[in-house]
């Protein structure tokens, strides 16, 4: 698993990556009440705002971690947004996307580096 400074995790599966937010991020957001996901098939650029998470407190944006195309989104989150708090690094993945430029993956942190980053 790789981690971004925006508190996303990325899991490489074949030619694609699965993206979600870290347990640390979910804890900081508080109770999630609404998740707005992009349409599959959308081409996105790194740092583009593509997911909105609303917690009881406020709305937050999730940025595209890399360039690519959204291939699938986790529809379950529309009905069960609280999954983001319950299982942020498992069942509550947000979207799956292609990797347009593999070199963009190099800058991300591994688990040890992320743990140090949030410490």
């Amino acid at each position: 698993m790789k981690f971004t400074e925006e508190h996303e995790w990325l899991r490489v599966e074949g030619n694609e990556v699965v993206v979600g937010i870290t347990a640390h991020a979910a804890e900081q957001l508080g109770d999630v009440v609404f998740v707005e996901l992009p349409e599959p098939g959308t081409t996105v650029s790194k740092d583009e705002e593509i997911v909105v998470i609303e917690s009881v407190k406020a709305a937050s944006d999730i940025l595209a971690p890399i360039d690519g195309e959204i291939t699938a989104v986790n529809e379950m989150l529309a009905d069960e947004p609280t999954k983001v708090n319950e299982d942020p690094e498992g069942d509550a993945w947000f979207f799956r996307m292609t990797v347009a430029d593999a070199s963009q993956m190099d800058e991300f942190m591994d688990e040890a580096a992320y743990k140090a980053f949030i410490a």
């Binding site: 508080g30 109770d31 009440v33 917690s55 009881v56 407190k57």
Partner: peptide, 12 residues
């Protein structure tokens, strides 16, 4: 204090 251990939803 904006929230305690229960969290906003739990406290509500």
């Amino acid at each position: 204090p904006v929230q305690y251990a229960l969290g906003v939803m739990g406290e509500h």
